[in-house]
Design a binder for these strands. Sequence first.
RNA 1: GCGCGCUUAGCUCAGUGGUAGAGCAACUCGUUUACACCGAGUAGGUCGGGGGUUCGAAUCCCUCAGCGCGCACCA
Length: 730
Amino acid sequence: MLDSRYDSKEIEARIYRDWEQSGFFNPDQCVAKGVTKKNAKPFSIVLPPPNVTGTLHMGHAAMLVIEDIMVRYARMRGRKTLWIPGTDHAAIATQSKVESLIYKKEGKNRHDLGRENFLARVTQFAAESHATIVNQVRRMGASIDWSREAYTLDDSRERAVREAFKRMYDMGLIYRGARIVNWDPKLQTTVSDDEIEWVEEKVPLYYLKYGPFVIATARPETKFGDKYVVVHPKDTRYAKYKDGEKIDLEWINGPVTATVVKDAVMDMSFGTGAMTITPWHDATDFDIAERHGLDKEQIIDERGRLLPVAGEFAGIKIKDARAAIIGKLKEKGLVVKVEEGYEHRVATSQRGGGIIEPQIKEQWFVAVNKPFMKSGKKTTLKELMRRAVAQKKIKIVPKRFEKIYFHWIENLRDWCISRQIWFGHRVPVWYRSTDAHGRPNGTPSDSRGVEMCVGETPKGEGWTQDPDTLDTWFSSGLWTFSTLGWPKETKDLATYHPTDVLETGYDILFFWVARMVLMTGALLNDIPFRTVYLHGLVRDEKGKKMSKTAGNVIDPLEMIEKYNADATRLSLVVGAAPGSDIKLSEDKVRGYRNFTTKIWNAGRFVLMNYRPEFAEVKISMSAADKKYLAGAKRAKREVARYVENFQFHRAAEHAYHYLWHTFADKVIEVKKGDLKGSDAKKAASAYRLLEAILRECLQMLHPFVPFVTEELYKNLPRKESEFLMIEPWK
RNA sequence: GCGCGCUUAGCUCAGUGGUAGAGCAACUCGUUUACACCGAGUAGGUCGGGGGUUCGAAUCCCUCAGCGCGCACCA
């Protein structure tokens, strides 16, 4: 007989173990054991791999729940269902985490340890983190196929990365070049445009005398080498100056010869309509310089200090130099006006928090605007990404994110994929130069006698591998097919790709979702998934982002310990419309714990009234009972409809209401008398009805609250399946 | 600057043309065996403001306001 108390700790541990041992998380087993038809329609999802930087938070929990709902539903509907687990090495995130841990504990940096030793430490950290994460995924009840687990940095994925790099290089989509990149002086690496956080700042806007011009700038400390003054070609104020005209003038550290450049990028209404440019440290200026073939000079070094071009200011950190430079400019009478409170955005590194200093660097890039041939047609990566969604091959839920996606693509620049960090996939390129100096300064394949080998480790003497590693999103971009065995033509790849749904947070739509579309389009000429379902961020009850420093973090494991896993799951689904943030409070979890108790008690009540002799009583169902049963079936159909339309919040709520306010409050109450009365026929008929409805309830609730429903199912007197998890949903 | 979202009961939210809903919180009553992690009941909203379309609008259109977010080469 069932305990009056629902002992979640014992039950959850036991049930998860039984599920896992049954092998039914693996679709091959389901087919082998006859649970799933051999030719059943596949349903596949890849788990967005959590970073091996620590532990799972509520956002991960929300993701696991939504995916598990889809997976359990699909499995019960008879689909050949695969959910692949994995973890992400998260290059920069993990490396900087371990670096700071080691520095705090031992006072050493990565250079003190050396590349090999340091990487061993990161690998060890990643392994510990992995163990924690895997345990947490299990505790949430995820019905995921552990036999196919992958890691973005394991051997199989390494092969995929090398192959992808090689193929894209051969297609001309990956190139090495000196372009302006986002340099993080703190982490000493480049970062991509998407890894930047713009911070609004109010600074003085300086109007400086530049010969006959007045130019406005918020960053006087970068202006040393400025020798071009740019104006709009149609600006009548500057009509008397010809494009390319040279003017001698007095500047910060003495006389310079300036050249007039006319470019339509200028906004005539801003400042004086004239500006000087610093092409080495500003993306816009870089573009102007490229368009007009202008010189570019480095002013700031990799650690944020001024170079010798700054004369007396050389060696000073730019932040400290500003006041001194303004002082000198004032002395020389070059400051015309200072406008206080000018609003301006500063690029900061999302990871390290430091201020990004654009630099021109020789890096590896993915060319997004370069035409290439794809199945006989000319296209670009940008176009390919746009069309996948525009032509409705990929659907984004909620739809409004499609617009955001298109907008992002329009503004996309070439993607810088090389990083100057150690942890990650090393760039699969080898160089051999006659002077044997490792990586050369120039273009590797240029005339300076440097040989280059891409893709596989070359044979022979004197080769040096590129010291850089790849952006972590390069390997995650391959995730839907690298997890299925690509570049090998595996059966899994043929069966489960493209995947059905990619479920993730809207905050990584660009980082990840778009990159997957890009990589899959380029390499497989296909889409990675048919539907993108975006969930919101999990916030605290006041709508604030959960963070350790704010102390408002609700830990999913703690909620599971205190309440139970099913309650934790429901609290992350109900009230969470697609794409909108979820406000979570402990009260909410407690509320759903009460609901799991209600399920337990309703189920227990039905089961405790079972008598074996009911089997011998012949009954025909009354019209009223048929109506009750039909109501349950209708509720289940509604739940199914909501799940299929990705409205999990409504599905869960619907099932919740049916169980509590119809089944428990009405049907059970009405039938209670009959059940307990002396009339055997009435009792049998009441029981029969309640059990039938209970079965419907257990099914419709199972994707949301798998543990309590599975345990009740286990105690049904007659069962059709070994587990509720695989009971056909009809 | 461009774009998007939100604004419904104290709180969290559902509700896409037809007499305002749920959960939590509050209040009252109730422990005669499924459940006090409960039940029965009560109270609480001119659906952000204004205008329009319509026989009829929380729901469609316009406009304003507040909050939040995304994007952007205004130095």
